[in-house]
């Protein structure tokens, strides 16, 4: 599929919940010493309701709630593992991301742009997501620019 035809399409909406073990192990894997991502007690001491989800899982949450990474990237190219990369990531947070909290995610492809890079042509596909609580309170908005290298 020509990726330029994707501009404006709505992604399947869905829900996702980060469980305690995933936030804990993600903090370990990213060498994050902040124990608010591991224990309720530490999060409460910091003024929160309970164990927090690292912000850096925001892309994972959006992808998983809207079909998963293979579906997201497979939409862009049949063999995306040969030449696709994250180019830019932007997010604005309105509320805490908490372990065990189910979030509702809607997304669409906001923009598709072809460019000539230093090593050939490339296409930048911007995915935009809106993440809310089940009560429709905003948690975060995120945009991810995925870069597809031509001929990869």
């Amino acid at each position: 599929m020509d990726p330029t035809e994707l501009e404006g399409i709505e992604l399947p909406s869905g829900e996702y919940t980060v469980e305690r073990w995933k936030a804990f192990l993600w903090a370990d894997a990213t060498r994050n010493d902040d124990d608010t991502f591991r224990y309720d007690d530490d999060a409460i001491e910091a003024g929160e309701n309970g164990q927090l989800v690292p912000h850096t899982l925001c892309q994972h949450i959006a992808f998983e709630a809207t079909g998963g990474i293979e579906s997201t990237m497979g939409r862009l190219a049949d063999d995306w593992t040969s030449g696709a990369a994250l180019g830019q990531l932007r997010a604005t947070f309105h509320g805490p991301l908490e372990v065990g909290q189910t979030v509702h995610v809607e997304g669409h492809i906001a923009n598709v742009e072809r460019k000539e890079g230093s090593s050939g042509g490339l296409t930048i596909v911007t995915h935009a997501y809106d993440v809310r609580t089940p009560d429709d309170e905003p948690i975060y908005e995120m945009e991810a620019d995925m870069i597809l290298m031509e001929g990869a």
Binding site: D34, T36, F37, A43, A46, G47, E48, L52, P54, H55, A85, L86, G87, Q88, L89, R90, A91, T92, F93, P96
Partner: peptide, 14 residues
């Protein structure tokens, strides 16, 4: 920051 929830936004290029 006292808590990571103080993060308002980020914009990063890889």
């Amino acid at each position: 920051a006292a808590s990571p929830t103080a993060l308002e936004s980020f914009d990063t290029r890889f």
